[in-house]
């Protein structure tokens, strides 16, 4: 029989500050950078924060010594996303902010984030959303698992944690199957929007968040050279980016009993049937 590990859990939840999807988003045609002025916590990361906090609550809560550290890499304003995570229940925050990181591709982003997780130290679990809503690659969680040598449990439809064995299990869609996967900690977990319903912070939670600390971290603290990250350290260079012409509304008709026929006429006109 193996001895039961009852050490408190140290969880890092990665949050990204992204342009609000509800507004028009723009890529500047000269700098080729995304306009980040109207940014918020990525809505898909709310599911990650919820999963991390709910996991702690299922294991005796924060009183048992478990920690959820909300971590981000981004400009100064990205601390607003950490604050939102703190309001949702995370215990503290860590913010990697360094000009040199601008222009990082996913390979380099995962390098910096892995270094950040290692800087936090003794982490049992990294939780992320299924994808960022700005770059939409959804590959960074897998790359983090690769770099940290953690088990990869990604695109979770649901999350189960067994406190006695410290095993995490999830269900995920894969080709024409739904798989139930299990792994021991340490692990990287990414959760889909099917996994839970993120909570809305109440007044008490918002006030409590004000007392929680956010630690600022620079590249030097992580032992990373400026040349190794950002545009300088990335293989990928964006050459150009152009807005597709906005779709325009076409003909709109009111159904007066023959609209189904009109629909088929339209298909025939467009040579779609």
């Amino acid at each position: 029989m193996t001895e039961e590990n009852t050490a408190p859990l140290k969880i890092v939840v990665l949050v990204k500050h992204v342009p609000d999807v509800q507004f028009d988003r723009h890529i500047d045609s000269a700098s080729l950078r995304l306009d980040r002025s109207e940014s918020v916590l990525s809505e898909l990361d709310e599911y990650a924060v919820e999963a991390a906090v709910a996991l702690v609550e299922s294991q005796g809560g924060f009183a048992a010594g478990h920690e959820v550290i909300a971590a981000t890499m981004g400009a100064k304003s990205a601390s607003n996303s950490i604050k939102k995570a703190l309001q949702m229940g995370a215990s503290s925050g860590v913010h990697l902010n360094d000009e040199a990181l601008i222009g990082s591709d996913t390979v380099v982003t995962s390098k910096a984030l892995a270094a950040l997780v290692e800087h936090v130290g003794d982490v049992d679990l990294v939780v992320t959303g299924m994808s960022s809503t700005d770059a939409e690659t959804s590959v960074v969680p897998a790359q983090l698992a690769e770099r940290l040598n953690f088990a990869q449990l990604t695109h979770a439809l649901n999350v189960d944690f067994d406190g006695a064995t410290r095993e995490l299990s999830i269900r995920r869609d894969h080709a024409d199957r739904t798989l139930t996967l299990a792994a021991a900690l340490p692990a990287v977990l990414s959760v889909t929007d099917q996994a839970n319903d993120p909570r809305y912070p109440n007044f008490k939670a918002i006030m409590a968040a004000k007392k929680k600390s956010i630690t600022e971290v620079s590249l030097a603290d992580l032992g990373l050279a400026a040349q190794a990250v950002g545009a300088a350290g990335s293989h990928i260079t964006v050459l150009n980016a152009e807005a597709r012409p906005a779709r325009e509304a076409g003909t709109i008709i009111n159904d007066s009993g023959q609209a189904g026929i009109a629909l088929v006429d339209f298909l025939a006109e467009q040579k779609l049937i």
């Binding site: 779709r247 509304a249 009111n254 009993g257 023959q258 609209a259 629909l263 088929v264």
Partner: peptide
């Protein structure tokens, strides 16, 4: 409707079966 090339303001329970029927008839 802002992104539709062709829009129908109507009840899908009427429009869809009528369209399906018309396609089968023409085919």
């Amino acid at each position: 409707f802002e992104i539709a090339d062709f829009g129908i303001v109507g009840d899908l329970d009427k429009v869809l079966p009528q369209a399906a029927e018309e396609i089968r008839r023409r085919q």
